[in-house]
């Protein structure tokens, strides 16, 4: 049976349909989960999509962490369920404390809308199990606050524990250590700024994101709870 992926819909999300389409395209089943729901039952994996959840008021992701669904997302993650936050979803997961660090404004004060190259740094995460270490993937970015930062101890820990999932080949936004995505200690929660769901069909200019979403499907159903 195809893995069921829940795509969390906040007021202000705008990449949820891209995620649904892409997951369907690679053979998964995806459904929207409203942020006001208190359950993610029936989902084998979760995507927190891009956009401007709650208008990015206060800070990107700051209000989203109070959405009723986030307790269910936290429990799902604690049980080992695969969760990926893309762009604004990455910001939501850092604000919710599910991932370390924060996303600050891009160095250069520019909203970046372009296709960049990221290198897969580790394959033992929910988002990269089907990729090969060193793979270089062409994936679009669309963000203003994508400049990853964290304190020196956290950065050392991320490196020591092999938790930098993808790095920019040519850093577009000033992120520390060229970090484009990181994972949690359990390696089942991953956040990244690039949009793999927008690089899953050759008509979109790149299919390089598909391997990441296929990895998410492969890790679906691995909960131990």
């Amino acid at each position: 049976m195809a893995a069921r992926v829940g795509v969390i819909l906040f007021p202000g999300s705008n990449c949820e349909l891209d995620a649904l389409e892409a997951i369907g395209h690679i053979g998964g089943t995806a459904e929207l989960v409203w942020h006001g729901d208190r359950s993610v039952e029936g989902c084998d994996a979760l995507v927190v999509p891009g956009g401007f959840a709650h208008g990015d008021y206060l800070r990107p992701g700051a209000i989203a962490r109070f959405s009723p669904v986030m307790d269910a997302v936290r429990n799902f993650a604690a049980e080992g369920g695969p969760v990926v936050g893309i762009c604004n979803g990455f910001q939501v997961l850092t604000e919710a404390g599910l991932l370390p660090g924060a996303l600050q404004k891009n160095a250069g004060l520019k909203f970046l809308c372009t296709t960049i190259t990221v290198r897969v740094e580790t394959t033992t995460t929910a988002l990269t199990s089907q990729a090969t270490q060193g793979d270089e993937l062409r994936i679009p970015i669309n963000h203003f606050e994508g400049n990853y930062t964290c304190d020196a101890n956290t950065l050392a820990q991320l490196r020591d524990e092999d938790r930098v999932v993808v790095r920019y080949v040519d850093n577009p936004n000033g992120s520390v250590d060229n970090i484009a995505g990181v994972c949690n200690e359990g390696r089942n929660v991953v956040g990244l700024m690039p949009h793999p769901e927008r690089a899953c069909h050759r008509l979109l200019g790149s299919e390089d994101g598909a391997v990441l979403l296929r990895s998410l499907l492969a890790s679906a159903g691995t909960r131990v709870g």
Partner: peptide, 13 residues
């Protein structure tokens, strides 16, 4: 305010 060492592109601009 942004902490020291955190890039402030608005301030810089």
């Amino acid at each position: 305010r942004l902490r020291p060492g955190i890039a402030d592109p608005q301030g810089a601009t």
